[in-house]
Design a protein around this nucleic acid. Sequence first.
DNA 1: TCTTCGCGTAAGTCATGACTTACGCGTAAG
DNA 2: CTTACGCGTAAGTCATGACTTACGCGAAGA
Lengths: 104, 104
Amino acid sequence: MTYAKSGWTALADSTRRTIFDLLVERPWSVGELAHRLPVSRPAVSQHLKVLKDAGLVVDRPAGKQRIYRVDPAGLTALRAELDLFWSKTLAAYKVAAEQPSEEL
Amino acid sequence: MTYAKSGWTALADSTRRTIFDLLVERPWSVGELAHRLPVSRPAVSQHLKVLKDAGLVVDRPAGKQRIYRVDPAGLTALRAELDLFWSKTLAAYKVAAEQPSEEL
DNA sequence: TCTTCGCGTAAGTCATGACTTACGCGTAAG
DNA sequence: CTTACGCGTAAGTCATGACTTACGCGAAGA
């Protein structure tokens, strides 16, 4: 819940979603990601920082490089929010269905 | 899938998430939302347009006012993306667990 | 019909943030 | 120890977008 606010904004940026798309497959180093993306390496570092602050990824030093991977806890938090949206929406629809006055 | 790209950006903004939070409870008119929020009514209209373009809400004319409600299809699309992230992450962890060389 | 209400849009302002290059630090190699 | 590598951060630029006020349109009431 701590990262809830920035979780959405972290995945809002297109480049960051691409990075995250790669990270869900397997761990990547910063240089690997930068080589794969059309932006500079510092830009990748900045994006990774945002994802890390949002609790979506974690990093681990490995010699000269740094390996990033997805943090399942961050994903779980986002899913919980989305599920709450979903359940409330369904509940609202149920209420609307019980009121014969209004159509959908 | 058409709205997938803008779905995240639509919920990235804090004000828009607040609007969406209200809309999942029940349908609201634009004026009601504006009265509830610390921004002007045109600002609310612009936010609703973004949410509508993202497929997250639908609107319906009701006399002089316009009623907005959540579109379950948009929520489903977001959930599908998130679930895909989740399953891929789990699969990657399973692969990592089968390789005794690296720890988490 | 005239007025009022609710809303969307246009235009302009200002803050946010996504990028760049330059730099500095720790690690591995020679 | 010196060099090269991988990375993070600082500083500055530029585009995006979140807001405002002003305006115009359609619907309901008098």
